[in-house]
């Protein structure tokens, strides 16, 4: 790889990652914040490629860009009456900023000052095969625990998010009323204008 190309890739990907993360901080709309998060995650996936960790880069795109961002968008869409605004809490921002600046100084100092004894050997080849083999040989116990954790998280998320039958019936009834567009629904409850039913569209 030519040196100039590598420099260009690193600096542009770094700018993309940090810029996306900063825009999350600045953005006032939560949906925009999630889109900026996607940009930042794509930048990190590109940085994994510059570190020749191809397998991790693909996993990053699949899980973060594909799954987690969509999950977050769903959570935002399912909480319509909660504020979409992504603003900061003014009271806690100042002490939080102070703590963060101290952490930043400490981590930067450690990162720059330490002699890491960095060597640049040949990158791993056949990473997917090596990671898979070590997962089921050397790391078999964490692998099993991870499987149990993912199952527990799946069941737990469904159990938490599931509505009671009574709630579900009330919700379905109010949704029906909204779809009909009659005046029986309290206007305060309706966030979006009621959708026209199929009959109205046709006529």
């Amino acid at each position: 790889m030519s040196d100039f190309g590598f420099h260009l890739a690193f600096w542009s990907l770094a700018a993309m990652t940090i810029g996306g993360a900063s825009m999350i901080m600045v953005s006032r709309n939560l949906i925009h914040a999630v889109i900026w998060l996607v940009l930042s995650m794509l930048g990190i996936a590109g940085l994994y490629l510059t570190l020749s960790a191809e397998f991790i880069a693909v996993v990053q795109v699949l899980i973060y860009v594909g799954a987690i961002s969509v999950l977050m968008l769903f959570a935002i869409m399912l909480t319509p009456r909660a504020e979409r605004d992504n603003s900061q809490n003014i009271k806690t921002s100042a002490p939080a900023g102070l703590v963060v600046i101290m952490v930043m100084i400490a981590t930067m100092w450690v990162a720059i000052d330490t002699d890491w004894g960095a060597v640049r050997e040949a990158a791993l080849t056949e990473q997917a095969r090596l990671i898979g083999e070590s997962l089921i040989k050397h790391y078999i116990l964490p692998f099993e625990i991870g499987a149990v954790l993912l199952t527990a998280a799946l069941v737990g998320a469904i159990a938490l998010a599931r509505q009671d039958d009574e709630d579900a019936a009330v919700h379905a009834a109010s949704l029906q009323a909204e779809l009909k567009g009659d005046g029986s629904v309290d206007p305060v409850d309706v966030v979006d204008p009621p959708l026209p039913s199929d009959g109205e569209v046709g006529s």
Partner: peptide, 12 residues
């Protein structure tokens, strides 16, 4: 640090 600040200061 950016993530830390977002986690500490966001309302939502």
């Amino acid at each position: 640090c950016i993530g830390f600040f977002i986690a500490l200061s966001k309302k939502n």
